[in-house]
Simulated scan of single mutants.
Amino acid sequence: MQFNFSGLRALVTGAGKGIGRDTVKALHASGARVVAVSRTHADLVSLSGECPGVEPVCVDLGDWEATGQALGSVGPVDLLVNNAAVALRQPFLEVTKDFFDRSINVNLRSVMQVSQIVARGMIDRGVPGSIVNISSMLALIPFPNLTSYCCSKGAMTMLTKAMALELGPHKIRVNTVNPTLVMTDMGKGVSADPEFVRKLKERHPLRKFAEVEDVVNSILFLLSDRSASTSGSGIFVDAGYLVT
């Protein structure tokens, strides 16, 4: 499926690595002007080399004040992908305030803040828009040692619905993409046990995890006019896991 985003400006958070990086590259190849947001300067430098014209913004989205300063004058944005996330592993009984707060601040609070900034601009300009929040199948099921992450993604489901309800009258659609495990750097970090990975893969009816490309294709679909009547919903890229 080919997408054409010529004439549109997109903002992608967590753009330095994995799903975010490939989303930037796909949007750039489809004609969009892209603002790439990452906390890692070196990743933005290399991404700008691969995608000339990409606008890099280096900021830690877990910092409310720094984010507001970095993105407060970002300019017109038509498409937003809230992808930035951390997956901090701790058993439930050992979860610390710092780990929990960091998970919520990056995975959830930044979604609200960045979306507020972008949506206000859309409304002021009187233009429609599309926002895609990158969630997880762990919004619906728990994994061991990922309590904080699961909580943040479960809350994202309701945040997405609330955004869709209030932004819908302004012709702004809001949806999620919910992948199973994707073997990005983050995915490898939370699945370091080979035996756990083997058993987990066997529980997927398709006997596979999701590829980055599978997730990116779903993101592009929800950003595009081909999903013009879809809002407050989600696409599960889970290889059938949730049917078991």
Rank of each mutant, 00 (worst) to 15 (best):
K153Y: 06
L159W: 05
G121Q: 00
I141G: 10
L79R: 10
P194M: 08
M122G: 09
R102A: 15
K188H: 13
P205G: 14
P179R: 04
I117G: 04
L206W: 09
L181D: 04
A210K: 13
K171W: 12
I172A: 11
E202M: 10
A210N: 12
I123S: 08
S148L: 09
L140Y: 15
M186C: 13
A119K: 07
G189K: 06
L146S: 13
V174Q: 01
L181G: 07
M186T: 15
R198S: 13
K199A: 14
N178K: 08
K153A: 00
L140S: 14
N105G: 02
I104Q: 14
L88F: 09
R120D: 12
Y149Q: 00
I117A: 08
V111E: 01
V190C: 04
F99T: 13
K199H: 10
D185L: 08
S110F: 11
R120L: 08
K97Q: 14
R102Q: 15
A155P: 02
I172H: 12
A87T: 09
N178E: 14
K153T: 05
E211M: 11
S136Y: 00
T176Q: 15
F92Q: 08
M163W: 09
A85L: 06
V174I: 01
L167M: 11
I134F: 06
N105P: 03
M112V: 12
V114E: 06
R102E: 14
N145I: 02
G168F: 04
A162M: 12
I104R: 04
H170V: 01
V86R: 01
G129P: 05
V177D: 04
I172R: 12
E211S: 13
M137T: 05
I134H: 11
P194E: 02
T180M: 00
R89Y: 06
D98M: 05
V174P: 01
G168P: 00
I131A: 11
A162S: 15
F209E: 03
S130C: 07
D185S: 06
L159F: 02
L80K: 11
T96C: 02
T157F: 12
K161N: 09
V190T: 00
L206K: 14
L200R: 14
V81I: 04
A139K: 04
D101L: 11
P144F: 08
V111N: 11
S152L: 08
I141F: 11
Y149P: 04
V197A: 12
F92D: 09
L159C: 00
D98N: 11
P91E: 01
K188G: 12
T160R: 03
N178C: 14
L181P: 04
T160L: 00
K153G: 00
T160C: 10
V81L: 02
P194S: 06
T160E: 03
